Computed example of a mutant assay.
Amino acid sequence: MFGKKKSSPQIDKEQLELIENAQKRIKQKKRLYVHFVLFLIGAIFLIVANTVIGIGKDVTLFGKEWFLFAILLWLFFFLYHLFNVFVTHKFIGKAWEKQQLEKLVAKQKDRIEKIKQDLVKEETVLAKSEVYNKTKNINKKQSTLTIIAAAAENNAIGKDNQLIWHLSDDLKRFKALTSGHHIIMGRKTFESFPKPLPNRTHVVITRQANYQAPDGVIIVNSLEDALDASKSDKQPFIIGGGQIYKQAMGIADKIELTRVHSTFEADAFFPEIDFNVWKETNNVFHKKDSDNEFDFSFLTYERK
């Protein structure tokens, strides 16, 4: 607006000197070219003026026509000019140009380094800003995704969409851990329940279009959508079946596993636990009794 001056581009003295030197060299070569043309025209004019027109025809120096000495003198000045433009410049100017180029390169390196340092400073300021921290907190993971399952020594978890053992303590533990939370499952697992489990939000993954479920049951088409539907829960649980467990192994934070110390025939299996990824943080062994027909252990794994 009014009174505001346009900002002029900044240029280093070294860069300016280099540009001025280049312009000077161009002018020198142009002047040398003009000098050469004038010398040729002038020499022809002197010869014509003396021999054809007769100007100074009787004037001689050392027995020679005067124009020969004039042409030789002019040739001397031209050769001196040529020497200054190419020979003197070669001995003096090139070294100076090289020095200027080295200065320029060093200057640009310093500028690049300064830009890098400024970027680091800006990032630090940004990291301390309220907006950045607010965005960071929003993007920060707010929940712990837990896989909960009961699996035999051979990783069997079920057959014909039914459990293949009865462990009263395991069912009590499942209820205690999952109550009040979202439980994510595949369609077949959901259909294995006589009715939705109380005090839990059911999220059912199915590829079936228009799948009908009781009120309050959330129907989604993928594990990603199931997690999105459970984002308000600080600890949603993956409860099966085998394919859903397999998909969740790469993103879960914790595994609550009841290991049944026996092997069974089954058509659904829990995925192998990679101990390079998971570490065992809790292990409680229980012997079989009247309420639990097999020995079992409550195991907890957390991602390393």
Rank of each mutant, 00 (worst) to 15 (best):
K175P: 08
K175H: 13
L177D: 14
T178Y: 01
S179M: 10
H181G: 08
H181I: 07
H181C: 06
H182S: 14
I184V: 08
I184E: 09
I184Y: 11
M185W: 09
G186L: 02
G186P: 03
R187N: 00
T189P: 03
F190M: 03
E191C: 07
S192A: 08
S192M: 09
F193Y: 13
P194S: 13
K195E: 13
K195H: 10
K195I: 02
P196Y: 13
N199S: 15
R200I: 04
H202A: 01
H202V: 02
V203F: 06
V204M: 13
V204Y: 07
V204N: 11
I205W: 04
T206P: 00
T206D: 00
R207H: 15
R207F: 00
Q208P: 00
A209G: 02
Y211A: 03
Q212E: 15
A213E: 12
A213H: 10
P214F: 08
G216S: 06
V217H: 12
I218S: 10
V220F: 10
V220S: 13
N221Q: 13
E224G: 13
D225I: 00
D228G: 12
A229W: 05
S230D: 11
S230H: 08
S230F: 07
K231W: 03
K231D: 11
S232R: 09
S232K: 14
D233Y: 09
K234T: 05
K234Y: 09
Q235R: 14
P236N: 07
P236T: 01
F237H: 07
I238K: 01
I238M: 00
I239R: 10
G241Y: 01
G242D: 01
Q243F: 04
Q243P: 01
Y245P: 05
Q247R: 11
Q247I: 01
M249D: 11
M249K: 04
G250K: 15
I251R: 04
I251E: 11
A252R: 06
K254D: 09
K254P: 01
I255A: 05
E256L: 07
L257T: 00
L257S: 00
R259H: 12
V260K: 03
H261C: 06
S262Y: 03
S262K: 10
S262V: 04
F264S: 04
A266D: 04
D267I: 02
A268R: 09
A268V: 12
P271D: 14
I273V: 13
I273N: 08
I273Q: 10
F275A: 05
N276R: 02
V277L: 11
T281Y: 02
T281L: 05
N282S: 15
V284F: 11
K287S: 15
K287I: 07
K287V: 04
K288G: 06
D289L: 03
D289R: 02
D289G: 06
D289F: 06
S290M: 12
S290Q: 13
S290N: 12
D291N: 13
N292D: 15
E293Y: 03
F294T: 01
F294D: 06
S297C: 07
S297A: 14
